[in-house]
Design a protein around this nucleic acid. Structure first.
Length: 341
DNA sequence: CTGGTCTCCTGATCGC
DNA sequence: TGCGATCAGGAGACCA
């Protein structure tokens, strides 16, 4: 997976939606029914604790900016250690997981009260399961450790259900943990996010993209990366989907025909599904809950291939910064052509 | 309101 | 062999 040619960009570091979904599927069975018995916080600043604020609970945040504005109605706390440990689910038993875009929510309950731990992996984050106590290598950047006991599930005859350990590590710290009080707060947090690019039914995803891109006065690549437009599309899959749909990344989003946008939605969804099936795509840092690497990097048609021949036509692939992201495309295959609608 | 730009942070890599 | 420069990028903060 080494990029040897001098012109080759580095492979991606970051986990995207398929990696997060793969992680969710692999870690959920480890967590369900298990209870957090101990927490070790090695870097508290990766944790943000949110509480529903007293006032203005339901002013629809649609008018505000960014995903953080969806957190209007939520208020950041500066917790003492005991509060932080409770917020990180100490004493809680895991009941489920959810995902929206690149965000993974771990749901747990204690004394009938549910709490939610939202995990965002950023570029270099890892959430991992360990059957035995993990060691902390100096450069591992493990920020939080959870110890879990086996819970009350019925074991195979005569055997005891083992406990385990979960760690959150993130060298670059673009990721983080958000602690929420309830499922309602999670819904609130996710309200400003667009529809999930993977699990939304095809027709709904296409309709949402037609509406959102139709009013976006910026490059389609920039719009795709905006989590309010559609949740879960990062740099890799934005480039891949635009290539598949024959759309130039600099094309003004609102100038795309609805048919072309529907084509884009179809390809985007198919590419994400394929990547999930392949076990997540990335690469150097991404590992699933078991510590295995994903296998999907071979699926990339353009990402990380700037200057190399287009796999469809052989022309050298273009590279430029668009929306502050390295963008790769084929100027022949993605040129506007009416016969592609 | 919108969209564009800066910033955070560390490790891998490359040129000298 | 070592060291500094460069690059990667999700998303919040900030600005025009």
């Amino acid at each position: 997976m080494q990029a040897k040619g001098a012109t080759l960009p580095l492979p991606s570091l970051m986990p995207e939606l398929p990696e997060v979904e793969h992680l969710r599927r692999t870690i959920e069975p480890r967590l369900l029914g298990r209870t957090v018995t101990r927490i070790e916080v090695r870097r508290a600043d990766v944790c943000k604790v949110w509480r529903a604020s007293a006032h203005g609970e339901d002013a629809a945040p649609s008018a505000s900016r960014g995903l953080s504005s969806a957190r209007q109605g939520l208020q950041r706390l500066q917790p003492d250690p005991a509060t932080l440990h409770a917020a990180l689910l100490l004493g809680h038993t895991f009941t489920g997981t959810q995902r929206r875009g690149k965000e993974l929510a771990l749901v747990a309950a204690a004394a009938g009260c549910a709490r939610v731990l939202c995990v965002h992996l950023g570029m270099t984050g890892q959430l991992r399961w360990h059957a035995t106590p993990p060691t902390f290598a100096p450069k591992a950047h493990v920020h939080v450790l959870w110890e879990l006991d086996g819970g009350e599930r019925v074991p195979a005859a005569g055997s005891k259900i083992p406990g385990g350990f979960m760690t959150f590590a993130d060298p670059r710290r673009f990721g983080g943990l958000a602690c929420l009080d309830s499922a309602g707060d999670l819904a609130h947090r996710w309200r400003a996010m667009g529809l999930d690019a993977l699990t939304t039914p095809p027709d709904d995803l296409a309709a949402a993209l037609v509406a959102e891109l139709g009013r976006a006065n910026r490059a389609v690549k920039a719009a795709l990366l905006d989590q309010r437009v559609v949740a879960g599309v990062g740099n890799i899959y934005a480039d891949e989907a635009l290539f598949a749909a024959h759309i130039l990344p600099r094309k003004l989003a609102r100038r795309l025909s609805p048919d072309r946008v529907r084509l884009l939605a179809t390809h985007l969804r198919a590419i994400l599904i394929r990547a999930v099936e392949a076990g997540g795509s990335t690469l150097r840092d991404y590992v699933n809950a078991e510590g295995d690497r994903g296998q999907a990097q071979t699926l990339h048609q353009v990402y990380g291939r700037g200057g190399l021949p287009c796999l469809a036509c052989g022309l050298s692939l273009q590279t430029a910064q668009i929306a502050q992201r390295t963008t790769v495309w084929c100027r022949a295959c993605q040129r506007d052509r009416r016969d592609w609608t």
